[in-house]
């Protein structure tokens, strides 16, 4: 247990100034579901904690042109309740719904789920599959970084010590596009994912796959895109055979480790099985479900 000061900065400028003054000993608190546990176990020992949970620029869910902009401090329960997210980013809505428990969803934030950089974070595969970018604010202004570049390893990101994640920008899902999320846990609630995955597919008038994104979680140091699987589908018909081939490629290209939740080979089997199921769900007529539990 460490002692720390608690500050609720009224503006982003105050936050940045505070972080600068705290040097390397400041921590940003959004939902706290991860930070509090880390502080209590001694993994994190901040001197000052900056609470951004009410900070306006980090709070909204806004549709802007072809994008959906979500504040970093938007809570999972708000994502679940948002009609805009369900419509424009249904896989994210599904991931938020399946995450942990209601109590946690009422606190945990989108930004927190990303910045924690757990390879098993549930919100990450939907964002990765949708080519989301992150808005990072630092002393030198803002920069926009693709999520894929932001995550650099388990618990590691390219976020600077005096930088904050303020917004997540998701390209909206077009009318012909479908997306979905699947989570495999040891139980149906409050489970750290054994694997999780999200898919986004756009099938053209000609019945061929125009674009596809498949993101896998908990099978590599960071969530990853299954590029080989995607490549195998683009320009081809979503036939059972092609989908199976893509699923097999996804299982091949992931790099799972063995841990207390599953063995590496077990994870590969799950990736193949669930990628196939996910692709089938995406290609079914009627579109992807935006909610519901899968495992």
């Amino acid at each position: 247990m460490v002692y720390f000061d608690y500050v609720k900065p009224p503006t982003l400028e105050h936050l940045l100034e505070g972080l600068r003054q705290a040097r390397f000993e400041g921590a940003v608190l959004a939902g706290g579901t991860d930070l509090h546990v880390k502080i209590r176990s001694g993994v994190a020992c901040p001197r000052v904690v900056f609470d951004i949970s009410d900070l306006a620029p980090c709070r909204g869910i806004v549709e802007q042109g072809n994008h959906l902009r979500l504040g970093a401090a938007v809570r999972m329960s708000e994502i679940v309740a948002s009609a805009a997210v369900r419509r424009k980013a249904p896989a994210l809505a599904a991931a938020a719904l399946q995450m942990s428990s209601r109590q946690i969803r009422n606190r945990a934030t989108l930004g927190g789920n990303i910045v924690t950089a757990s390879p098993a974070a549930d919100a990450v595969p939907p964002l990765l599959a949708a080519d989301a970018t992150l808005v990072l604010l630092g002393a030198d202004g803002t920069r926009e970084v693709p999520l894929a570049e932001f995550l650099t390893g388990p618990g590691k990101t390219c976020l600077g010590k005096s930088e904050v994640l303020t917004e997540v920008v998701i390209p909206s899902q077009g009318p012909g596009c479908r997306s979905h999320f699947v989570k495999v846990g040891r139980r149906k609630a409050q489970a750290i994912s054994i694997i999780n995955l999200a898919g986004r597919i756009d099938i053209g008038q000609d019945g061929l796959v125009r674009d596809v994104g498949i993101a896998l979680g908990a099978v590599a140091p960071t969530a990853m895109r299954a590029r080989q699987a995607e490549k195998a589908l683009i320009g081809r018909a979503p036939s059972a055979k092609n989908l199976a081939e893509a699923a097999a490629l996804a299982a091949e290209e992931c790099r799972p480790i063995s841990d207390v939740r599953a063995t590496g080979s077990g994870r590969r089997l799950l990736v193949e099985a669930w990628t196939l199921r996910l692709l089938h769900l995406l290609c079914e007529t009627g579109g992807a479900r935006s909610g519901g539990r899968n495992s």
Partner: peptide, 15 residues
Amino acid sequence: LDGAPVNACLVLAVQ
């Protein structure tokens, strides 16, 4: 907390 269930262990009292 304002009607919504939360884990009190994950909320700072000052929040």
